[in-house]
Design a protein around this nucleic acid. Structure first.
Lengths: 253, 253
DNA sequence: CTGAAACTATGAACGTCATACACAGTAAGG
DNA sequence: CCTTACTGTGTATGACGTTCATAGTTTCAG
């Protein structure tokens, strides 16, 4: 009566579900090895350095050998995006807010350590073992808050999204914004100066006022750890309010 | 006394700052035309269809002619990411919360209409004329709330980030998650079934409980408009609380 | 023990693409 | 008119993802 449901070959490999081959030469490589090699390259040379050729030669096989373990380069990137993720922090009986704060910050830091994740994350619903473990821990932390499962998942999604966007901001702020070449910077030293250069106060009244007031003095100062906690606070305050509302609903009903 | 600051050639073109050529043949094309053509292709065939060749032939020139207006394909993508953005909604004297809600939703809808934006957005601080207009309106909407400029910008960033991640979720939920090929789906019809197939209840206790309870029945139902408002509500509640705090600080001090 | 079957890695080949460069054509200024 | 500045073209190149037929290797069946 068990319906023989079949996952995609890629998912089966990510979950270690493929049956061991019963004939032929022993595989010299492995999805895990390939993925690890790709991650090392990406960490060192950026995502641009990750080509089927470079990954293969680091593993010690021909480029085309990878296709026995990976349907396409896209598949490889998907596998990388799951494999870089370490184990989530331990709950340790803390209140949900403390845990989720750490949980979110940890996610952001992972992205910052592997900035190439920013170019991959399509934000597909997670299907890999490591990412799902994070989701599980977030749900667990929200146990007993009175939220229903759907709400818990939404909270987790929002927090993950926030971690990602903040990481993107920090990353792009640090690396010359990627908008103009360093050789072309000339006299314009930072974001604020650049905006001042370009904005017409009539069409951009509020923004140019802020620029003039120096709110954007240096980009390094614009987005930092304090700002992360700021936005995170907004979200968590919102969650807290929702939980309170659910609690009062539960009582009065 | 005016220091002759120089922007990157790309930025100058995006802001229409390049001096008109005084000699030679009249340009047959234009950064705006090129960008528009690229956007049309991306809307129709996805970002994969956008190559220097395809864009050029749609404009009616040779592929290499584009390089006179665009430093690289990257530049073209940057220009596209600014040019798709329409004008922001009109404030119309509404309270900040109403306006920002519409502002954020509008951003999400833009991304949904042009899903290729998801593959571009590096989340660089905006430097194009259209995106900066959106930022300006958000700051304007927060005038009189007692927040300082930095806080306003952070709020706007958080909201933009949320719009983007939510759009990504909706998009990926609708299109078969991009995780397994349709030919490989077999019996597994949706996200919930797939997780049920793969999760071990011992290592994923909270998540598999939620799955078993049917919280993930259908992906279409998982992420939709209501969920967008949910997450948005969390953020705006947080903002509201911050504003209230600032207001009370202002009084007592 | 033998041979078929199952499986692995290889190398050559293909098509696509971004980009560099030298060149031919064209408008304006002196 | 001829120089100067500028525009679009054609050719070429190198990198990359992917396909395919093939040779080599291990196990199982008889």
């Amino acid at each position: 009566m068990e319906p023989a449901r079949r996952l995609s070959p890629m998912l089966e490999r990510m979950w270690g579900r493929e049956p061991a081959p019963r004939r032929g030469p022993r595989p010299r490589i492995d999805l895990a090895t390939i993925t690890a090699a790709a991650i090392e390259i990406a960490d060192a040379d950026g995502l641009a350095g990750v080509s089927m050729g470079s990954v293969a030669s680091r593993v010690g096989v021909a480029a085309t050998a990878l296709y026995r373990y990976v349907g396409s380069k896209e598949d490889l990137l998907t596998s990388m995006a799951d494999a870089v993720v370490p184990a989530p922090p331990e709950p340790g009986g803390r209140p949900w807010r403390d845990y989720l704060a750490q949980w979110t910050k940890a996610q952001r830091d992972i992205v910052l350590e592997h900035d190439w994740l920013l170019s991959i994350s399509r934000f597909a619903p997670p299907l890999g073992p490591r990412r799902l473990l994070w989701l599980d821990r977030a749900l667990a932390a929200l146990d007993g808050t009175g939220l229903d499962d759907g709400e818990k998942i939404n909270v987790a999604s929002s927090l993950t999204g926030y971690a990602l966007t903040d990481a993107a901001l920090v990353h792009n702020a640090g690396s010359g914004f990627g908008e103009f070449d360093e050789t072309d910077i000339g006299g314009v030293s930072d974001y604020g100066d650049l905006l001042a250069e370009v904005l017409d106060p009539e069409t951009y009244p509020a923004l140019s006022a802020a620029v003039r007031a120096g709110a954007l003095g240096g980009v390094e100062g614009w987005v930092d750890d304090e700002d992360f906690r700021f936005g995170l606070g907004l979200l968590l305050d919102g969650v807290e309010r929702l939980i309170a509302r659910r609690a009062s609903e539960g009582r009065t009903r």
